[in-house]
Amino acid sequence: MKVFGICGYSGSGKTTLLEAVIALMTNRGLKVSLVKHAHHGFDIDRPGKDSWRHREAGAGEIALITDKRWVLMHEARNEEPPRLDDILRRMSPCDLVLLEGFKRAAHPKIEVHRPILGKPPVWTEDCDIVAVASDAAIDCPLPRLDLNDPEQVAGFILEHVGLK
């Protein structure tokens, strides 16, 4: 599987860009998966539901299966979070796995950078960033992609991973 990431600070537009890029790629017939890194806790379960009650009782993993989708939840009690490579090995085969976040992981990625947010660029400290998507002119030695042109960003990614 090819792996390519989109990184940047919170509020920079990573999710919106990825949503458009994924739609463009899947419309071309590619099978695309995504792994998102979150810095805060989250819960896809709801208090009172059976699966929530099973987790609260101490179950380490719970699989929820319906006609339309399934999910495997792993409760990381007193465990380190899994490494990205471990998660990638567990994923079903596809053409491309896109990563959202994972700023410090060693994989090719585009930084989404909006100067108006006042955050420093990440590309200055991360040699795995191969381009910057921005909505403003920036002084950067890397290729600059138009953040508002998901077709351009998708094309760059596909060319970079050899799927174009």
Rank of each mutant, 00 (worst) to 15 (best):
A133G: 05
D85Q: 15
L142N: 12
I110Q: 03
G101W: 05
E125T: 12
G41F: 04
A57Y: 07
L64S: 04
P81M: 13
A105V: 11
E61I: 01
A38C: 09
E100Y: 09
G58M: 02
P120H: 11
P121H: 01
R83Q: 15
V130N: 08
D126S: 04
L96P: 01
I129A: 08
E75Q: 14
R144G: 01
P81S: 13
P143H: 06
T124R: 15
I65H: 00
F42E: 07
P82A: 14
V130I: 10
E125G: 11
F102I: 10
V112P: 03
D139H: 13
D85T: 14
H74M: 12
A38I: 09
I62M: 04
D86I: 03
I44Y: 12
P108N: 11
K68N: 07
L88K: 07
R144N: 05
R77D: 10
C127W: 02
K36V: 09
N78T: 10
H39C: 01
H74S: 12
D45I: 00
D45Y: 00
L98C: 03
L142R: 12
V132K: 03
E79H: 12
P120Q: 11
V97D: 02
P47E: 14
P47W: 00
P121A: 04
I138M: 06
D126T: 01
D126N: 13
E80F: 09
D135S: 03
L72K: 10
A137V: 05
I129Q: 08
K109L: 05
L72Y: 00
P93D: 15
I62D: 03
A105M: 08
P47I: 02
E100P: 09
A131M: 03
P115W: 09
A136T: 11
E111S: 07
R77P: 04
L88E: 06
H37D: 13
P47F: 00
G48I: 06
I44W: 10
P47R: 00
W52C: 04
R104M: 12
E61K: 10
E61M: 05
I87E: 07
G118Q: 04
P143R: 08
L117P: 08
K119T: 13
D67N: 07
M91Q: 10
F42M: 08
H37M: 06
W123N: 12
P47C: 00
I65G: 00
E125H: 13
E125K: 10
L84Y: 07
K109N: 08
C140P: 04
R104V: 06
R114C: 09
P47L: 01
P81R: 14
V130K: 15
F102T: 07
I138D: 06
K68G: 01
P93R: 12
M73K: 06
I44Q: 08
C140W: 01
D139Q: 15
T124A: 14
G60E: 15
P141D: 04
L99N: 10
V122Q: 08
D128R: 12
L96V: 10
H40W: 00
A38W: 02
I62K: 06
P93Y: 09
C127A: 12
W70C: 10
H37K: 15
R77Y: 13
L88C: 05
F102R: 09
D135H: 00
S92E: 13
E125Q: 14
P81C: 11
R77H: 12
D135K: 05
A106F: 02
L84D: 04
E56D: 13
T124D: 13
D135V: 01
E79R: 14
V97R: 04
